[in-house]
């Protein structure tokens, strides 16, 4: 059978210290994200959301790699995790892209010219 090299009969036991370190980091990042949200960034206020998402991504990465053992997992799991994130990015990215695109006005003069030249209602 096509097994990965990681035979699961001998479990990879992660040392306690690793779990505690990850836990501590998660706590630190939680405090950090609340702090960043509360301070006044002045003209850079728009940075609040990107920063919050960045910190959340770091926290999620810690959980995925260590608590969920992907760091020690097979390459196949890596591939599927990355594929899932890519697909989510497609869904969000393309959809939001439509809404951004709706605000881009076509060149009004070009628009005017074609509308003057041929009104589709008269063509019918």
């Amino acid at each position: 059978m096509s097994h990965d090299a990681h035979a699961a009969d001998s479990p990879h036991i992660v040392p306690l210290s690793v779990y505690l370190t990850i836990f501590a980091l998660l706590m630190v990042f939680t405090v950090l994200t609340v702090w960043v949200a509360l301070i006044d960034l002045g003209p850079y206020g728009w940075l609040h959301t990107p920063l919050a998402l960045l910190i959340a991504s770091v926290k999620a990465t810690l959980v995925v790699l260590w608590f969920m053992h992907v760091k020690y997992g097979s390459r196949l799991v890596w591939v599927f995790v990355v594929a899932g994130l890519a697909w989510l990015a497609l869904l969000v990215g393309i959809t939001v892209g439509d809404y951004v695109g709706r605000t881009w006005e076509p060149d009004p003069h070009a628009w005017q010219a074609s509308a003057d030249g041929a009104d589709f209602r008269q063509l019918g």
């Binding site: 697909w87 497609l90 393309i94 439509d98 951004v100 709706r102 881009w104």
Partner: peptide, 18 residues
């Protein structure tokens, strides 16, 4: 196949760039 879904929405009011 995952990248073409907007072809069902050409006349829906979707951005013409999309």
């Amino acid at each position: 196949g995952f990248l073409v879904w907007g072809h069902h929405m050409f006349v829906s009011g979707q951005s013409i760039y999309a």
